[in-house]
Lab assay of single mutants.
Amino acid sequence: GHYRIRINGREFEIRGISEEEIRHLEEALRNGADEKILKEIVDRLRG
């Protein structure tokens, strides 16, 4: 998958993330885990 997200007015492209991972992120966001989720995304993109 290849997705664009906007955070604090800046747009980011996220590549190589699966539909299942996105559902997991959405679930966590609904549970209020904003900073933790951003850290997970950044860590994943770093490799």
Rank of each mutant, 00 (worst) to 15 (best):
I41V: 06
H24D: 12
I17A: 13
G32H: 06
K36S: 11
G1S: 03
Y3G: 11
V42I: 14
S18R: 03
E27L: 10
E13K: 02
E27Q: 09
R4Q: 12
A33K: 07
I14E: 00
R6D: 04
A28V: 14
R10L: 15
I7M: 02
R46F: 15
G32E: 04
I7T: 01
E13R: 01
A28T: 11
R6E: 11
H24A: 09
I5Y: 01
H2A: 09
G16E: 06
I17T: 02
H2V: 09
I7L: 04
K36P: 04
I14T: 01
H2Y: 13
E21C: 13
F12D: 00
L29P: 00
N31T: 13
D34I: 15
R4M: 10
I41H: 03
A28R: 06
I41R: 02
N8Q: 04
R4E: 08
G1E: 08
R23C: 06
L29N: 02
E19R: 08
E13L: 07
I37C: 06
L45G: 03
E27I: 07
H24P: 03
E13P: 01
K39Y: 14
E13N: 02
F12M: 05
G1T: 03
D34A: 15
R15A: 10
E35T: 09
N8G: 14
R6G: 02
N31Y: 09
E21G: 12
L25D: 00
D34G: 14
N31K: 11
A33W: 13
R15V: 13
E11S: 04
L45D: 03
N8M: 06
K39R: 14
I22N: 01
G47Y: 02
V42G: 04
V42C: 05
R4S: 03
I14W: 02
E40N: 08
R44V: 07
D34Y: 14
A33H: 07
R10D: 14
E19T: 11
I22L: 07
R10N: 11
V42Q: 05
G47A: 14
A28Q: 10
V42F: 12
H2W: 10
I7E: 00
E35D: 13
I37T: 12
R23H: 10
G9C: 04
G9R: 01
G1N: 08
E11V: 08
I22H: 03
E11M: 07
R23M: 12
F12L: 04
I14M: 04
R30G: 08
E40K: 08
E26Q: 06
E19G: 09
F12G: 00
L25F: 06
R4T: 12
G32D: 05
R23V: 09
G32Y: 07
E35I: 12
K39Q: 15
R15M: 09
E27M: 09
N31I: 10
N8D: 06
A28E: 06
L29M: 10
I17W: 04
H2I: 14
I22D: 00
N31A: 11
N8A: 07
E35P: 11
R6M: 15
K39N: 11
E20M: 08
I37A: 10
I37L: 13
H2L: 04
K39T: 13
H2P: 04
Y3K: 08
E40M: 11
N31F: 08
E21I: 05
K36I: 11
R46L: 15
Y3P: 12
V42E: 04
I7H: 01
E35K: 05
R4P: 06
Y3A: 14
K39G: 09
R6H: 08
K36G: 09
I14G: 00
G32Q: 06
G32W: 06
R30Y: 08
E11A: 02
L29S: 03
G47F: 04
A33E: 09
L38P: 01
V42L: 10
R46P: 05
G9M: 01
H24I: 13
R30W: 05
G16D: 09
D34M: 12
F12I: 14
I37G: 05
E20C: 05
E35R: 04
R15H: 15
G9P: 00
G32K: 05
N31W: 06
F12A: 00
I7S: 00
I14P: 00
G1M: 04
A28D: 02
A33I: 13
E26G: 03
S18P: 06
L45P: 03
G1Q: 05
I14S: 00
K36V: 12
I22G: 04
G16R: 02
I5Q: 00
E21Q: 13
K39V: 14
D43N: 07
E11D: 07
I7A: 00
R10Y: 14
G9A: 01
A28I: 14
I17E: 01
I5L: 02
L45M: 11
I37M: 10
D43G: 07
V42W: 11
E13V: 12
E19Y: 10
D34Q: 07
A28Y: 09
E20A: 11
G1I: 06
E26K: 05
V42R: 03
G1R: 05
E26R: 04
R10A: 13
L45E: 03
L38A: 03
G9V: 00
E27D: 13
I41A: 04
N31Q: 09
K39A: 13
G1K: 07
E19K: 13
I17N: 02
S18M: 04
D34S: 14
I22V: 08
R15C: 14
R6T: 15
E26P: 00
R6N: 12
E13H: 09
D43E: 09
K36R: 14
S18Q: 04
L38G: 01
D34C: 04
I41Q: 02
G47R: 10
R46G: 15
I14Y: 01
I7P: 00
K39M: 15
I41M: 13
E20D: 09
E27A: 11
I17D: 02
L38D: 01
I22A: 07
I41Y: 07
F12W: 09
G47H: 12
I17H: 02
N31L: 09
R30H: 09
D34T: 13
I17G: 04
Y3L: 15
G9W: 01
L38I: 11
I22K: 06
R23I: 09
G1A: 03
I7F: 05
E19D: 13
H24E: 13
R30L: 10
R44G: 08
S18I: 02
K36L: 13
G32N: 09
L38R: 01
R46D: 10
G1V: 03
I17Y: 02
Y3T: 14
D43Q: 07
H24G: 10
I14L: 13
I41T: 04
I17P: 02
I17F: 03
I14K: 00
E20P: 06
L29F: 07
G32M: 07
F12V: 10
I14N: 00
K36N: 12
K39L: 15
